[in-house]
Nucleic acid binder design. Structure first.
Lengths: 197, 197
DNA sequence: GATTTTGTCTACCATTTGGTAGGTGGCCAC
DNA sequence: GTGGCCACCTACCAAATGGTAGACAAAATC
């Protein structure tokens, strides 16, 4: 929330890229919304692509931090999974744009998607290794850890960003509903993963 | 694969809307690809929006049919879930564009998303009722049936269309891999839903 | 055989878009 | 106080885009 112009631009761009999409967001519209001129945007970010790049970089870092924070106090085993899911849902309620951006970037494909993944890859690897270790130790049902990750990723992103599908299912996307969705995701994961032991 | 011009346009539009996205698909590009002029497209479909509408209508119907066919021979209980998942994955290997379009349309939001949902809504209701009945009968672990549906939807669509994330996980999107992903989804669902009984 | 309809085309057009060129006022160092 | 830099601006532009107007040939209709 710095008052710097470039930060304001990044904030607005993040919101717009996430909600309207990258290619339907015009620099003019963005500028108008900020009550500045398009050339000011182009002063700070030489091209629209560069702006996207900057938004991705900042967001990916923020995302990674949120994960780290979520993991900090977490215990071991299942508690760790729960901590991460809770961290993502906390993010979804505080900065929904961030998760919307993830969705959009993954849709845009390379090079944007690559840029984001480079930052998040270490987390992915850690998560994958963690799941595998848990399975080896018999504390979680055995699945392909990477495909399991994809399933978790898709489900969580879906629960948080699939506004239209939610509406179709009669679930209004309110804050209260978000809590229910979190509980549900955790319930599903628990029954899918937790062993009786 | 009819040779009619309007069908050729619909085919190309479906593929392009799904893979490149609606707003990055220009009528000129579409026309060039079909070796016709843009005005021919606008003769059959008065506006780009109308073209999208027609693509959605045809695709939603096709999608609904695929579900019906998948359900036809299916038994009861868990077998039914398995049949539906298999039907979707079959679709994913034969007409991946169809599922890509679903993803894109849900991103576009209303009125496009509404149009698609109107056609698919009966299926959603049936599925929801089915899951609830299974849970009531104790043949499936209890979860909110609608959120469970969203989770299944997200996971399946993700497994099929999240090319970038798949790559990041070291899973090349080949036909062989698709079979593995199907098996994995079924495995996950089974352990999440099936009761011991 | 004349006429209407159908399908496709050429010729334009207004608007939007990302981006360039270059100016201007304020502020700071010296 | 003046030279230089920073942040932002006005003025433009070329390309692309969705869409209109209307010509024209082939085919169908009478």
């Amino acid at each position: 929330m710095a008052t710097g112009t470039s930060d304001r631009i990044l904030d607005a761009a993040l919101a717009s890229f996430g909600s309207r999409g990258y290619d339907t967001t015009s620099l003019d519209a963005l500028a108008k919304q900020l009550d500045i001129r398009k050339q000011t945007i182009l002063y700070w970010f030489p091209t629209k692509d560069a702006l996207l790049g900057a938004v991705i970089e900042r967001s990916a870092t923020e995302l990674a931090e949120a994960f780290e924070v979520g993991l900090e106090g977490a215990g071991e085993g299942w508690a760790k999974v729960e901590a991460v899911v809770r961290a993502v849902f906390r993010l979804a309620s505080r900065q929904p744009e961030l998760l919307a951006l993830v969705r959009e970037v993954s849709r845009l494909g390379p090079p944007a998607a690559t840029k984001m993944l480079v930052v998040l890859d270490p987390l992915v690897q850690r998560a994958s290794a963690f799941l595998e270790a848990e399975m080896d130790a018999g504390r979680m049902r055995r699945h392909d850890p990477r495909l399991l990750l994809l399933a978790i990723y898709s489900t969580v992103i879906g629960m948080v960003t699939e506004v239209e599908v939610l509406r179709a299912l009669g679930e209004e996307p309110t804050a209260r509903s978000l809590v229910r969705r979190r509980a549900d995701v955790l319930g599903l994961l628990r029954s899918a993963l937790k062993t009786e032991a």
